[in-house]
Nucleic acid binder design. Structure first.
Lengths: 128, 128
DNA sequence: TCTTTACATTCCAGTAACTGGAGACTTTAT
DNA sequence: ATAAAGTCTCCAGTTACTGGAATGTAAAGA
């Protein structure tokens, strides 16, 4: 199938699918006449896999790792679990950051009367 | 003072401080002989301000806005509050995303025995 | 004073993961 | 036959820096 079909089936944009071909993550066959990329169902499955992994916040490099594990029928689940646990830990980090950020900002907003006078605790805090 | 001093006082890297000069956010005076950037206490205050705002996840463009409000003695607190509320909303968005991401991943990890056998619910889920 | 060392400058390239657009070619539909 | 839609490659831009090379200046020690 052509790239737009593959894109539609995998829920990715054509640009993104082409990008994944460029970086050799999913390299489709080529139609010899037209030079068009020709995607198999297998290629689409990989695109799907990558799309999901990206939505799970795995980086492209991590996706590459996962993909090779995915394609290796003899792989163990240990490595995948390790990778995923590390990912969870980094998400926890981010969560902590964002929570404290949110708390600080909402505290500041609550102190700010938000009228037309120049007094503003948010800016005051920022400039301390 | 020289750039490294300003960097130290503001808690930013020299590269970053130079970058902020390049993009005309904090433009220090110049020593005519040497061509070295010469930072005033006021410049350092601005750097501090920007550093904090960046840590609060404001973008460079938003920092520019805040900085101009900060430097405008006649500004109202309304605009700042508006900007900050919008920022909180976007943080809430991110928090929601990360929470559900975390939940999904930890669910998968709990299902995965993590041994040397190829069976792995994480990859199974990814490939669905 | 000379020299070494530390600090400064500019400019170019690279990061992550795409996205947008130009110009050219192919396929499909009318 | 022609027009519209799809595809190709290649280049540039995004965000907010970071790293490095080549070069110039300043400060400290012998």
């Amino acid at each position: 199938m052509n790239i737009s079909q593959a894109a539609k089936l995998s829920g990715l944009s054509v640009k993104t699918v082409r990008y994944y071909a460029d970086i050799k993550m999913v390299e489709p066959a080529r139609n010899i006449q037209s030079g068009y990329r020709s995607y198999s169902n297998d290629d689409v499955a990989k695109l799907n896999f990558i799309g999901k992994a990206r939505r799970f916040n795995f980086s492209i490099e991590e996706c590459r790792e996962l993909l090779s594990l995915y394609q290796d029928k003899n792989r163990s689940s240990k490595e995948v679990k390790k990778l995923t646990l590390a990912k969870i830990a980094s998400i926890d980090e981010k969560l902590k950051e964002f929570h404290s950020l949110r708390d600080e900002l909402s505290h500041l907003v609550n102190c700010c009367n938000g009228d037309d006078r120049p007094s503003c605790p948010i800016l005051d805090e920022l400039s301390k």
